[in-house]
């Protein structure tokens, strides 16, 4: 077949044709992958929830709270046990003070203010240093660095360099501080959510801890 000439009409028709076919093909693939992409996202969310929460029967409605010192809202997923009692809440929290900026975490906090688990969802910290957050802060053999089981009742959780009780990741103090900042923000937002939502049965339990102290010390 002879090559088409570069006449204006030919150029227009061929370019238009190529673009049309390309867009149609992309539309088809988009439709085909839309469901799997949504599924993958949902599964990721589910796995994160399962890893930070103790066993639960059902999840309540998502509550969104806008923290006083941040521009994005924080999502709270309350989880209930078989008798409709609150077992813990998973909070999707963030901080901008990481070594490379944004860090997003999911953390489970039970009604006594204890951390049931956490998972780092997004970060851009230095590989090999700051990126060790997940392993470091959940190391059950090293109580100095493990944050799981710690309680917010004695105020904000801080690294030992700042007078707190958590050992920072070696050579990554800024990352460690940022990580704890996200943890504390999760707790603060959880408190304010329950305060405004007085009808919830969990309110009394949550209010039992000294949330005022909490906010004050973490703002330092």
């Amino acid at each position: 077949m002879a090559k088409l000439e570069s006449s204006f009409k030919n150029m227009l028709v061929s370019l238009f044709g190529v673009t049309l076919i390309a867009s149609a093909a992309l539309g088809l693939v988009y439709d085909a992958t839309k469901a799997p992409i949504a599924q993958t996202e949902a599964k990721k969310q589910e796995m994160a929830l399962a890893s930070v929460l103790p066993e639960y029967d059902r999840l309540g409605d998502v509550i969104k709270v806008l923290p006083a010192d941040g521009k994005d809202s924080i999502e709270i997923y309350p989880a209930y046990g078989p008798n409709n009692e609150e077992v813990a809440s998973a909070v999707k929290s963030y901080t901008y003070s990481g070594f490379s900026g944004y860090i997003e975490i999911m953390v489970g906090i039970d009604p006594n203010g204890e951390i049931t688990g956490f998972q780092v969802l997004k970060h851009a910290e230095t590989p090999g240093l700051g990126s060790k957050m997940n392993d470091w802060f959940s190391n059950a053999e090293k109580p100095g660095q493990n944050v799981i089981g710690r309680s917010f009742n004695d105020g904000a959780i801080q690294v030992s360099n700042d007078g707190g009780k958590v050992d920072a990741i070696t050579a990554a103090t800024i990352t460690s501080r940022a990580f704890l900042d996200a943890l504390n923000r999760a707790n603060r937002c959880l408190d304010s959510a329950w305060e405004t939502d007085a009808e919830s049965g969990a309110t009394q339990q949550i209010n039992g801890k000294n949330s005022d102290d909490d906010v004050a010390s973490s703002e330092q």
């Binding site: 077949m1 002879a2 090559k3 088409l4 000439e5 570069s6 006449s7 030919n10 150029m11 061929s14 370019l15 044709g17 190529v18 673009t19 390309a22 093909a25 992309l26 693939v29 988009y30 992958t33 799997p36 992409i37 599924q39 993958t40």
Partner: peptide, 30 residues
């Protein structure tokens, strides 16, 4: 042979971009 010489580069770019987007979507899903 269907693409006139003068517009071949834009046409090729469209073809390439299409496959890149397909890779992107499939990778995101699986």
């Amino acid at each position: 042979n269907l693409i006139p010489d003068k517009v071949r580069i834009p046409a090729f770019i469209v073809v390439i971009a299409t496959f890149v987007t397909i890779v992107e979507m499939v990778m995101q899903a699986y």
